[in-house]
C-alpha cells in the first residue's frame, strides 16, 4: 500500500512537471500575441456595435463581447486541442517522454492540464476586456459575470477535451470538423427536441434524445441572457451546470485516457 502511494505521488509530481513544461512551451510561443490581437478586435467590434445601437447600448456591446469571447475561446480550444497529442506523436517528441519512468496517464493528464491552464488565461483575458468595456460604457456589475467567465471556461474546456479525444482516433482535419460540429450540436440539440416535426416522429425523437445525452448541452452553460436582461438564476441551476460540466469533462477524459493507454504511438 505504501509502495502504491509513493508511486501515485511520483506520477502526480510528473504530471505536474509535464503540465508546467507544456504551459511554458505555450507561454513562450506567439499564442499571446494572437490572444491580445483577438481581444483588441473584440473590443473594437463591441464598441462599434455600441456606437450603432439605440437604447441600452452598453448591453448590446456586452452581448457582442460575450458572444465573440465564447466563439474565440472555443476556436482557440479547437486550435490547441487538435495538435496537442497528435503533433507530439508526429514529431516523435512523445517517444522521448513516455519512455521515461512515468505512465502514459501522467503524460496525457499533464499535457491536458497545461493546455487547460493556457485556455483559462485566454478566457480571463478576453472576458475581462468585454467587461471592462461594458463598465466603461456605464454597465453595472453582476455576480453572474464571474459565473459567466467560469461557464465560458467550462464550455471551451469541454470542446478542447472532445477535440483531443477525436485527435486520438482520427486525423487533424476530421478532428477540427468534429469539434466544430459537436460545438454546434451542443447548442441546437435541445432546441431541436421541441420542434413539432420531431415530436411527431417517434424514431427521430428517440435518435435526437439519445444524441441529447451523448453530446454536450452548452445551453446549460450559457448565462448570457441572464446577465444581459438582469434575470435572477437560482444557485441550484448554477451548481447543476457546474456539476454537469465536471461530469462531462470527466467522462471524456476517462474515454480519452483509455484510448491513449492502448494507442500505438507510431
Amino acid at each position: 500500500m505504501v509502495f502504491s502511494w509513493i508511486e501515485l505521488v511520483d506520477e502526480f509530481s510528473k504530471m505536474v512537471l509535464i503540465c508546467k513544461y507544456s504551459f511554458m512551451e505555450f507561454m513562450k510561443s506567439k499564442i499571446w500575441v494572437g490572444v491580445f490581437l483577438l481581444g483588441s478586435i473584440l473590443l473594437l467590434l463591441s464598441y462599434i456595435s455600441y456606437s450603432f445601437a439605440y437604447g441600452v447600448a452598453e448591453r448590446i456591446a456586452l452581448d457582442v463581447g460575450l458572444g465573440l469571447t465564447s466563439l474565440s475561446t472555443v476556436f482557440m480550444a479547437i486550435l490547441l486541442g487538435h495538435a496537442l497529442i497528435s503533433k507530439e506523436i508526429e514529431n516523435r517528441t512523445i517517444h522521448m517522454i513516455v519512455t521515461r519512468s512515468l505512465g502514459r496517464k501522467a503524460f496525457f493528464l499533464g499535457k491536458l492540464l497545461g493546455v487547460i491552464a493556457v485556455l483559462s488565461i485566454n478566457v480571463i483575458i478576453l472576458m475581462s476586456m468585454s467587461f471592462i468595456l461594458y463598465f466603461l460604457l456605464g454597465g453595472h456589475y453582476s455576480p453572474l459575470m464571474l459565473f459567466s467567465v467560469l461557464f465560458s471556461f467550462f464550455e471551451a474546456t469541454i470542446v478542447l477535451l472532445i477535440v483531443v479525444f477525436f485527435s486520438l482516433i482520427t486525423n487533424a482535419t476530421l478532428t477540427i470538423i468534429y469539434g466544430i460540429v459537436i460545438y454546434i450540436l451542443g447548442y441546437v440539440i435541445s432546441s431541436t427536441l421541441v420542434l413539432q416535426y420531431v415530436e411527431k416522429n417517434n424514431f427521430l425523437a428517440t435518435v435526437i434524445n439519445a444524441c441529447y445525452y451523448i453530446f454536450p448541452n452548452f445551453n446549460r452553460l450559457n448565462l448570457k441572457d441572464y446577465i444581459l436582461y438582469q434575470k435572477t438564476i437560482p444557485m441550484e441551476t448554477l451548481m447543476m451546470g457546474t456539476a454537469y460540466a465536471f461530469f462531462y469533462m470527466l467522462l471524456v477524459i476517462v474515454a480519452s485516457l483509455f484510448i491513449f493507454e492502448n494507442k500505438n504511438l507510431d
Binding site: L17, I18, M96
Partner: peptide, 27 residues
C-alpha cells in the same frame, strides 16, 4: 535511455529547458 530517429523537440523551449525537463522526469 532512448533516442528516436530524427526527433523534433518543443520549438519554444531552450535546449537547457528540455534537458532539465527530461532529467526531472528521470528523478
Amino acid at each position: 535511455g532512448f533516442l528516436p530517429e530524427r526527433p523534433y523537440f518543443y520549438p519554444n523551449l531552450t535546449g537547457r529547458d528540455f534537458i532539465a525537463y527530461l532529467g526531472k522526469l528521470n528523478n
